[in-house]
């Protein structure tokens, strides 16, 4: 168990700055998810911690040890890759035992540790792991083997680069829960890179949101989801409406309609409303206090399985709102509690 710290890490690829001075603490024994859209620098950050990338500036520390100059094999990390990276010519046992063989661990101990870790990741039948090749396994099973291969060397830090992205939805959800259980059971410091916000929220103790080479926000899943610090964070963390507005004299104007606003933002603003927070009312109903209301025309209602998504035209823009039941088209009022309306100044 070790705390990982990165301090002001910068990395350039040619003229593109992939990391623009990232500083962060990864708590020891906790699972931290680095979340962001593709190209945001999250994988670069992970690979800098692993040592596959030489950073241009800054430091990487494991506990009190500065590992910035160390090659990957001397850092004590183990990596789980998106494509599993199981060596196809080796058996399952061969794959998992490879790290221990390089460390010249005695044969009997190798056997013991490999079988123990394979049991831990619940690979199922252990009798034929010495004859079967990874290609004979399903994607989910392969990723379990890859996880076993990483854990067996008892690394200080477990690094995972979108490990579940190549799996189908069902397997992904089950492995997600197991990954969390395993990480808690082993108590290892784990860093998990993903572009899937649901996965990050479900798995991690701490979520780190990244965009364009910078860390946008760090916090617990609840913090990040309920109190997004920027328009980008709010937008990235859920199906939301991102509307342009303007604040003047305690009033917020959205698509020609004015609502009261008491927040700190002035001038041009970005207004974020989650589709799931918006309620749809009859325009004739009495307005409620402490809410914000817009009127519009419901144009379409789509069934998405778990709920219906309604598309409502408000002036020139279209707002999405989710509800449990379908609504007839026609004039509606959109209502949501004032504290759920997030208003950000425009940069």
């Amino acid at each position: 168990m070790v705390e990982v710290r990165v301090e002001n890490v910068r990395k350039m690829y040619g003229k593109v700055e992939a990391l623009k001075g990232a500083s962060l603490n990864f708590k020891s024994g906790a699972m931290t998810a680095i979340l962001g859209p593709s190209g945001c620098g999250k994988t670069t950050l992970l690979r800098s911690i692993a040592g596959f990338i030489q950073i241009d500036e800054g430091r990487v520390l494991f506990g009190n040890d500065d590992v910035t100059e160390l090659p990957p094999q001397h850092r004590g990390t183990a990596m789980v890759f998106q494509n599993y990276a199981l060596w196809p010519h080796m058996t399952i046992f061969g794959n998992v035992s490879y790290g221990l063989r390089l460390q010249k661990v005695p044969e009997a101990e190798i056997r013991r540790r490999v079988l123990k870790v394979l049991e831990l990741v619940e690979i199922g039948n252990l009798s034929d792991v010495e004859t079967r090749k990874p290609a004979a396994l399903s994607g989910g099973q392969q990723q379990r083997v890859a996880l076993a291969r990483a854990l067996v060397v008892e690394p200080k830090v477990l690094l995972m680069d979108e490990p579940l992205s190549n799996l189908d939805a069902k397997v992904r959800q089950r492995l997600r829960a197991e990954l969390r259980r395993l990480q808690k059971q082993v108590g290892i410091t784990a860093i998990y890179v993903t572009h899937d916000q649901e996965e990050a929220l479900a798995l991690a103790d701490t979520v780190v949101l990244m965009n364009q080479g910078q860390i946008i926000q760090t916090g617990t899943p609840q913090d990040i989801y309920l109190k997004p610090g920027t328009a980008f964070a709010a937008e990235f963390l859920g199906v939301s409406n991102q509307l342009e507005g303007e604040v003047a004299d305690g009033k917020l104007t959205i698509a020609g309609q004015t609502v009261s606003y008491a927040g700190p933002v002035r001038g041009k603003a970005v207004v974020i409303m989650r589709a799931s927070d918006i309620q749809i009312e009859d325009p004739a109903a009495t307005p409620r206090p402490e809410t914000m209301a817009l009127t519009g025309i419901l144009e379409e209602s789509l069934f998405l399985g778990a709920h219906y998504r309604q598309y409502i035209r408000v002036g020139r823009i279209v707002v999405m709102a989710d509800s449990a039941d379908p609504r007839p088209t026609g004039a509606v009022r959109l209502v949501l509690p004032s504290e759920k309306v997030q208003v950000y100044g425009q940069p």
């Binding site: 692993a50 596959f52 094999q73 183990a78 990596m79 990276a85 060596w87 490879y98 291969r149």
Partner: peptide, 14 residues
């Protein structure tokens, strides 16, 4: 041979 196969090995000190 995909780079990750080599990285996985390098990670273990190969």
């Amino acid at each position: 041979v995909d780079e990750t196969f080599l990285e996985a090995a390098r990670n273990f000190g190969a």
